[in-house]
């Protein structure tokens, strides 16, 4: 007889049930936590707490950690393939997810060289512009593909040094919750990634309105939800990234879209 797994939220580095005690069954016989507004707020707090440490790590160190996530995911290919329905499409999705971690692991220490500039201002000043992470990012994962959809948005957010609260696919949350187990063993500090499952319409308004969230990646929002999110985001001028049809493409801009640009002036002279 199998020992079955209890699916839990991934919050502040730990696996917890929803504080609300609620579950739902979107995906077979499993009870999945139906996260609450309080769960969401706890996760934002954890993500904010983790931001200074994660964003100040060296770019190289962040690359090593993201690469570790690829290693850990690679070791659990079979499990994810089964979770995603088995067969070639599922296998392809897992391969692409591994590839995504590897690809962004390589960008952590290259974003500055790609998007930073030295600006030849007309005066005796050294002037340069560099990208910096924006802060706590809410990632609204697409409903499908359940694993790759999330990884394609999560990896670039982390690559630039942000911390994340991710809303898992509502219909197929098991892969996202299991990804939490991969990240928990990838040397990511607790709180850098938090994964919340539940009813999107219940959680999204609170995420969009939360005053300590700096940006929302709205990849998984419907047109109506996007409008809602954009309006609520105005409360603290959140950046809302609307990923179009190219949301799944690998691009450094996926990371840069969640970054600020800072310009520094310094005089030159004896």
């Amino acid at each position: 007889m199998d020992v079955r797994k209890t699916y839990k939220l991934f919050a502040a580095g730990e696996f917890v049930r929803s504080e609300s005690g609620r579950t739902y069954q979107p995906d077979g016989p499993h009870n999945v936590p139906r996260g609450s507004r309080k769960d969401l707020r706890d996760m934002v707090k954890a993500a904010r707490g983790a931001f200074p440490g994660w964003s100040r790590r060296t770019a190289m160190n962040r690359g090593q950690v993201l690469y570790r996530a690829a290693e850990m995911l690679d070791g659990r290919r079979a499990e994810f393939r089964d979770l995603l329905g088995g067969g070639r499409p599922a296998g392809g999705q897992v391969d692409a997810a591994v590839e995504t971690w590897v690809w962004y692991a390589g960008w952590t220490d290259k974003l500055h060289q790609f998007a930073g500039t030295v600006n030849p201002v007309a005066g005796p000043y050294f002037n340069f512009t560099l990208p910096e992470p924006t802060g706590v990012v809410g990632v609204v994962a697409p409903e499908e593909p359940a694993l790759l959809g999330l990884v394609r948005r999560l990896a670039p957010a982390l690559c630039g040094g942000n911390t994340v609260v991710a809303l898992a696919s509502e219909r197929a949350p098991l892969a996202a919750l299991t990804l939490g187990e991969v990240l928990a063993t990838s040397d990511l500090p607790p709180g850098v990634v938090n994964v919340l499952s539940g009813k999107r319409q219940e959680l999204l308004p609170w995420l969009a309105a939360h005053m300590d969230v700096n940006a929302i990646d709205a990849a998984g929002c419907t047109a109506a939800q996007l409008a809602q999110v954009q309006e609520a985001a105005a409360g603290n001028l959140k950046r809302v990234v609307q990923s179009g049809p190219g949301a799944e493409a690998l691009s450094p801009h996926a990371a840069l879209d969640l970054m600020e640009f800072k310009t520094v002036w310094h005089p030159i002279g004896v």
Partner: peptide
């Protein structure tokens, strides 16, 4: 590690 990251970029 750094140049591995350029190979596919």
């Amino acid at each position: 590690f750094y140049y591995a990251g350029w190979a596919d970029k």
